[in-house]
Simulated assay, not measured.
Amino acid sequence: MRICLVASARFPVAEPFQGGLEAHTATLAHALADRGHRVSVFAAPGSDPSLDVEELDVPPFEPSAAARADVGAHPDAWMREHHAYLALMLRLARGGQSRFDVVHNNSLHHLPVAMAPMLSVPMVTTLHTPPLGWLESAIAMSGGASTFAAVSRHTAAAWSRAVQAEVVPNGVDTSRWQPGPGGGRAVWTGRLVPEKAPHLAILAARRAGLAIDLAGPVLDADYVRREVEPLLGDDARLVGHLHTDALCDLVGRAGVALVTPQWDEPYGLVAAEAMACGTPVAAFARGALAEVVGVSAGRLARPDDVDDLARAAREAVALDRTAVRDHAVRHCSVQRMVTRYEELYARAESPTQPAEAS
């Protein structure tokens, strides 16, 4: 099958990944190609060329002086992203049917959904976030031109007022995220931003009597300076923004992975990655984490309760690492995810075929 995979225009799909969406896109593209599909990824400049990337890079849009003077003018970054997706969708409308059998919209932008009725190629859109107003508007006006998937039951339920989405949980490459030996330190991975709350992971690890390493990109420097840096020391180290192989090694050598969202996590990819390494998870019970973290693979804590997270960490450390890994292989593998997407692509091509029960 010839697949057009539409990715983010904001961050490149390249190591080290800026976040779960970019890591997910790369994993999906490689796994589809491994199954014999021809995949073209439309992504931000600087993306991994091994993905057969066509960059979402168009001549810069420069609004006129009069447009810039408008008190309601959008920021330049917003306009650049809008312009890139508009150019892509017009290209697909003019000639997409000669190049592709299906378009998989893996972006968070509203234009691919809003312009789906213009295409002669079926579109599948994955919902990666809680409901967004501009996407709900695009869904309402697109007349069912896209087939929708959601990355968890929680996310599907959150979007149910706007659209009925089939649940296709995210997956990790369990051949790359290999089991590690464990160790005496905890680990936290992800974007260093307030909604991921790494500062709470440090506090919980200390109360559990554990040292902790934190890895990920600093996307809110003011937050990190204010909330994270004052807590750092020998027992709490910020080790940087790591490539996947180094991240696998770090996570595999940890005794427990802490996951501390202060928002309703749509899936929880970092939890799945940790479990694939055999590292048990202690997480706030927010969003889809209760779906991802099995009782044999981790412990959940009351949201935002540092003492309860410390309790969960102490309990999780004692779990059998082989059972943790087995849970990830059974429930969080990329192969399981790709099979579900192949089924969804086939149904999008033949929309009269009844959907199978999830």
Rank of each mutant, 00 (worst) to 15 (best):
A201D: 03
H104W: 04
S137I: 10
M123Q: 14
T126Q: 03
L132Q: 15
P181Y: 03
V163Q: 00
I212S: 02
G144Y: 06
P181V: 08
Q178I: 12
A205T: 10
G182T: 14
Q178Y: 03
G96K: 10
G95I: 12
W134E: 15
A114N: 02
A138T: 03
R176L: 12
T125N: 11
V224M: 10
W134L: 15
L203V: 10
G233K: 08
R237N: 02
P131E: 09
T129G: 06
V228K: 02
A197H: 10
I212V: 10
G95Q: 08
V187R: 00
E195F: 05
G184F: 06
D222L: 08
T147D: 13
A204E: 11
G209Y: 08
L119S: 15
S120Y: 08
V167G: 01
R225G: 05
D101P: 06
P169H: 05
T189I: 15
P169S: 06
A236H: 12
N106F: 13
Q178T: 15
D173P: 02
V113E: 04
W177S: 01
R191L: 03
G171R: 04
P122T: 13
D235F: 00
Y223F: 13
T155M: 07
P179H: 04
L192G: 11
G133R: 12
D235N: 08
G95P: 10
R226K: 12
A211I: 00
M115Y: 07
V218S: 05
L219G: 06
A197V: 11
R185I: 13
A116P: 06
R161V: 13
D222K: 02
L135G: 04
H109E: 09
R225K: 12
T126M: 15
D220L: 02
L232N: 13
W159E: 02
A236S: 10
S107F: 05
V103A: 02
V103S: 02
S107Y: 04
V187K: 04
F100E: 05
R225D: 07
N106V: 00
N106R: 05
A114H: 06
A156I: 12
V163F: 08
G144I: 04
A165I: 13
W134V: 13
D235A: 07
